[in-house]
């Protein structure tokens, strides 16, 4: 299945891309997706994760067509 990953702000700049499509087996978690997409980069501890525009935990299982976003802590206002 194909999953869309997005990166924002300093994380996007550091990784060097804003989005990517990744091929993964069904039943994969977001933590496993990160490792597939970024094998040389440990998951930064302060990074937030959203699935289909909702905050989720790394243990969440992804499904075909999901959009997963990774980003640093937010600072609005």
């Amino acid at each position: 299945m194909q999953i869309k990953l997005r990166y924002f702000a300093s994380l996007r700049e550091y990784i060097g891309r804003s989005e990517q499509i990744i091929e993964a087996d069904s039943g994969v978690t977001i933590r496993e997706l990160w490792a597939l997409a970024n094998p040389d980069l440990m998951f930064p501890s302060n990074t937030l994760v959203a699935m289909n525009l909702e905050y989720v935990a790394l243990a969440e299982v992804v499904h075909e067509g999901d959009e997963i976003a990774f980003f640093p802590p937010v600072t609005g206002g």
């Binding site: 300093s10 700049e13 094998p39 980069l41 930064p44 640093p72």
Partner: peptide, 24 residues
């Protein structure tokens, strides 16, 4: 520079705590 955390400034060109895996 980006500011990923309140009171902490992210600086371009700095690893900023993003750790590389040893197996990479």
């Amino acid at each position: 520079s980006f500011e990923p955390m309140r009171g902490e400034r992210w600086v371009t060109g700095n690893s900023n705590g993003y750790a590389r895996n040893n197996n990479g």
